[in-house]
């Protein structure tokens, strides 16, 4: 019973570490998906006094993925009844060209500013509208959210790692008698500590399975999907290959490193 309790303590601590890491990964994935979503919606409007090709725009900055001409026909159509055909033709020729520029990725506010300055330097470009203000606010909020989750995850990982360390120290005391008897018969450190490593590895595997199970249930329940769909994005909350392998590597890494720390510390105490 006591042994089972010890197992639970380590498994729960490892589960918490893995869960917080996976939450961070999911948030990162959400933000990347949202960036993609914003990137597709976001464009810069450029007003030019002459025709500019897509290649000319791309040459100005490699952030520009493609350009689209904004048709002026609708505006001219509205003016048809108020102006003569001759004046309308003249207006058509003298009317500036409007372009919508799409970017290869979601830019930082600094990148938008830089890009706007570059575009404005072009002799043919008369006006550039980047909607930087709106963009900046959304982006800063997103980064703030990401940072908060990251700090939160690191704090949880640090606290639970300390708990795991304490738990393993308890294990060491429980097994101290056996380890010292083995030492009297010349057992090397690795053999004396084998039981600690075995327990750590088994618990790391159980914690990984528990995290996979938890995310499988969340995934099946689908409420997270519904929330994300309201902002127009969809992500894979838990990849049962990549994320499971990452979780297992982290769980094994944390438990083995902490066991090693205890074993090495104990050897020095001898």
């Amino acid at each position: 019973m006591k042994s089972l309790k010890n197992h639970f303590s380590l498994i729960i601590a490892l589960f918490t570490v893995l869960f917080s890491v996976q939450i961070y990964v999911a948030v990162d994935r959400t933000i990347k998906a949202y960036e993609e979503h914003l990137k597709n919606d976001y464009s810069i409007i450029v007003v030019s006094n002459k025709m500019l090709s897509e290649a000319e725009f791309k040459a100005l900055d490699n952030l520009i993925e493609r350009s689209e001409t904004i048709a002026t026909d609708q505006v001219l159509e509205r003016l048809k009844g108020e102006m003569s055909k001759k004046n309308l033709d003249l207006l058509k020729v003298t009317l500036p060209k409007f372009y919508r520029l799409y970017l290869s990725r979601f830019p930082t506010p600094q990148e938008i500013e830089k890009l706007q300055k570059r575009l404005q330097k072009h002799s043919a470009i008369e006006r550039v509208e980047g909607y930087a203000q709106t963009h900046d606010t959304v982006y800063k909020l997103m980064l703030l959210f990401k940072d908060v989750v990251q700090i939160f995850s690191i704090a949880i990982a640090a606290v639970t790692s300390m708990l795991i360390f304490k738990e393993m120290r308890l294990w060491q005391f429980q097994h101290a008698e056996r380890m010292s008897i083995m030492a009297l018969f010349g057992a090397p450190v690795w053999l004396r500590s084998a039981v600690l490593f075995r327990l750590a590895i088994v618990d790391a595997i159980i914690a990984t399975i528990a995290v996979c199970g938890a995310f499988f249930i969340i995934d099946q329940y689908g409420w997270m999907d519904k929330v994300l769909q309201t902002v127009g994005i969809s992500i894979e909350l838990f990849d049962f290959v990549d994320d499971a392998v990452r979780s297992l590597v982290i769980a094994l890494g944390v438990s083995i490193v902490l066991t090693l720390t205890i074993v090495i510390g104990n050897t020095e105490e001898e």
């Binding site: 008698e177 056996r178 008897i181 083995m182 030492a183 009297l184 018969f185 010349g186 057992a187 090397p188």
Partner: peptide, 19 residues
């Protein structure tokens, strides 16, 4: 020391058996 102890047998008054 481990090598030497692998060639020694020790008997203690309090037995020192692994419970």
């Amino acid at each position: 020391l481990n090598f030497l102890r692998r060639h020694i047998g020790i008997v203690f008054q309090d037995y020192k058996l692994i419970k």
